[in-house]
Amino acid sequence: MTVSLSTPAATAIPGAAAAVRAEKLTKAIDDKTILKDINLDISAGRYVALLGANGAGKTTLLKILATLVAPSGGVLKLFGQTVRRDSIHIRSRLGLIGHGAMLYRDLSARENLVFFGRLYGVADAPGRAAELLKFVDLAPRANDPVKTFSRGMMQRVSIARALMHNPDLLLADEPFSGLDAPSCRMLEEMLSRLHGQGKTVVLANHEISQSLRLAEQAVVLRKGRVVLDEPASSLDPAAVLAEVSAR
């Protein structure tokens, strides 16, 4: 595929300002602590895997990074700017892929993409949608309602949706869950290609060996704390599993 997916001006240059910088981030709901003193430094253009057992706080951390949930304490800076409640400008540089497809089932793939594109104020939303539908290999099905799609196809539309506004930071929350092997491979390739184009990728995943293969940096959460933050190449899956499941 030869479609260019990044306008160079908008893309962060690797080594420039950190894409994500979290200092002593905490999240408590009522009196229960979900995240505690999270320090995180992700430089622009990195591919980071976020690992941890169920309930370790991966999804909450990702939601905080996506500005969906406000932290109870600490400072979060995205692209060097402090995140506040009305961080409209920061939001326009984020893309999120979640468990759910975040699509409207009764609308076609194209309608979904055009809608989200316009919501972000993308100049030529229909053109951009066509471009991305080609990228995720769904151009022939563009006008079918999303509800007729398989889970894998939906996830591909979901990726296209997250890319409509050409975000600099892509957050993915367990995107592989429920996908069959070919769809999985396709998604892996897409994420790697986007990373190759200079995007920062944060991938929350429970598949340890897959994550270590894909990402450059691995962050392990356990009971709401960061217990490991190292380059992925230096890590051994068994050691990471031990960290994930230690008590």
Partner: peptide, 9 residues
């Protein structure tokens, strides 16, 4: 969630 991550008041 798709709406909430968008720059939308």
């Amino acid at each position: 969630a798709g709406l909430l991550v968008a720059p939308l008041d």
